[in-house]
Simulated scan of single mutants.
Amino acid sequence: MSEFVEHLRLMARYNAWQNGSLVAAADRLSDAERWQDRGAFFGSIAATFNHLLWDDALWLARFAGDARPELSVPVSLDAPRDWGAFKTLRTERDAEILAWAEGLASSDLEGVIAWYPGGENTRVEKPAAVCFAHLFNHQTHHRGQIHGMLTAAGARPEPTDLPMLG
């Protein structure tokens, strides 16, 4: 088994752990506090959470061979609005990511991922390994924004250091 495949599996476990930590911290806030515009790229804690939920679905669809997942994965920073529904979806998505990572083989790293970000004539192809790494890098980037917003709001997520993963 490739060391990189093992790294991706580690990142999937880290992703689930960190999402759980951030959701638990956000549980201590009111709905209004989660949706309050805090000047981040997507505005609020909730909208940033929703962006990650959407983007994870988009990449998983691409990894499964759907070059046009934007047709079936609706973009919305406002949905779900219900916090309980979001938590259920986040847990399910993290389980999907874990299952995807567990199912990876070294040969999966050799292909390309293709998609059409701007319409029919804008096909993009990138090495699968780069796209797989991007999934986790993107999550870390936006989770850092969520962590900062939660901390500023008085909620305290767990440490984010990878060696602290149990």
Rank of each mutant, 00 (worst) to 15 (best):
E33P: 10
E33Y: 05
E33G: 05
E33I: 03
R34A: 04
R34E: 04
W35Q: 06
W35Y: 00
Q36R: 15
Q36F: 00
Q36A: 15
D37E: 13
D37W: 01
D37A: 08
R38A: 10
R38G: 12
R38Q: 13
R38H: 08
G39I: 11
G39W: 13
G39H: 10
G39Y: 11
G39S: 08
A40S: 15
A40F: 14
A40I: 14
A40H: 08
A40P: 13
F41L: 13
F41C: 03
F41Y: 15
F41G: 02
F41P: 13
F42A: 03
F42W: 12
F42L: 03
G43L: 09
S44F: 03
S44I: 08
S44M: 07
S44W: 03
I45S: 00
A47T: 13
T48K: 02
T48R: 00
F49H: 01
F49K: 00
F49T: 00
F49G: 02
F49L: 11
N50S: 02
N50I: 04
N50F: 02
H51R: 04
L52Y: 01
L53C: 06
L53N: 05
L53I: 10
L53R: 09
D55Y: 12
D55G: 08
D55W: 06
D55V: 15
D55K: 00
D55L: 05
D55E: 12
D55S: 13
D55R: 05
A57N: 15
L58K: 08
L58S: 01
L58H: 05
W59I: 07
W59Q: 09
L60K: 07
L60I: 14
L60Q: 10
L60A: 02
A61F: 02
A61L: 04
A61T: 11
R62L: 11
R62P: 12
R62G: 07
F63N: 01
F63W: 10
F63E: 06
F63S: 03
A64S: 13
A64Q: 09
A64G: 10
A64V: 05
G65S: 04
G65R: 01
G65N: 03
D66L: 06
D66E: 09
A67E: 15
A67T: 14
R68T: 13
P69Q: 08
E70M: 11
E70A: 10
E70G: 08
L71D: 14
S72N: 13
S72C: 09
S72H: 14
S72E: 11
V73C: 12
V73E: 09
V75P: 02
V75N: 12
S76C: 06
S76L: 05
S76I: 10
S76V: 10
L77R: 10
D78P: 11
D78T: 15
D78A: 14
A79P: 12
A79G: 02
P80I: 07
P80G: 03
P80F: 00
P80L: 02
R81E: 15
R81T: 14
D82P: 10
D82S: 04
W83N: 05
W83C: 02
W83I: 04
G84E: 08
G84Q: 09
G84F: 09
G84D: 11
G84H: 09
A85F: 01
F86E: 10
F86N: 04
F86S: 03
K87S: 11
K87H: 06
K87G: 08
K87Q: 15
T88D: 07
T88N: 00
T88K: 08
L89S: 05
L89M: 12
R90N: 09
R90I: 06
R90P: 05
T91H: 00
T91M: 00
T91C: 01
E92A: 09
